[in-house]
């Protein structure tokens, strides 16, 4: 069985990668992917903690259930995000977030 710490470390590395992506990418689609990666680190943590949790197994089931819900949530989020990307592309002709700065005064 993979050691608990290793899983957490992997999850942390994934989180760092996602964060790096969010901070550096200008392409909206890549931004979305980075956000998804961050989301997945959270899901990974849920599963890890549920699998290694002491006590009655009902706790483990709960963690897995949350993970499944979160996967669904991520899918929804991506759907919304891609819809925004499509709309942005239609209006701007590009998916570069640096070109969508209308909120600035």
């Amino acid at each position: 069985m993979i050691p608990f710490d290793d899983i957490l470390a992997g999850s942390g590395i994934l989180f760092a990668v996602g964060t790096f992506g969010v901070l550096t990418r200008r392409n909206f689609i890549l931004l979305l992917i980075s956000v998804e990666i961050i989301m997945n680190t959270a899901i990974l943590n849920f599963i890890a903690f549920s699998a290694y949790a002491p006590g009655p197994s009902i706790l483990g089931v709960t963690g897995q259930a949350v993970a499944v819900v979160l996967v669904g949530l991520a899918a929804t989020e991506v759907a919304v995000g891609l819809a925004i990307v499509l709309a942005l592309n239609r209006v701007r002709g590009s998916v570069d977030v640096a070109k969508a700065m209308d909120l600035k005064l």
Partner: peptide, 17 residues
């Protein structure tokens, strides 16, 4: 304060992080 509002998503993300 409004100078903080660059409108660039990446900057907002930086603040979040």
């Amino acid at each position: 304060g409004r100078k903080l509002q660059t409108g660039l998503v990446s900057n907002y993300a930086s603040w979040v992080i």
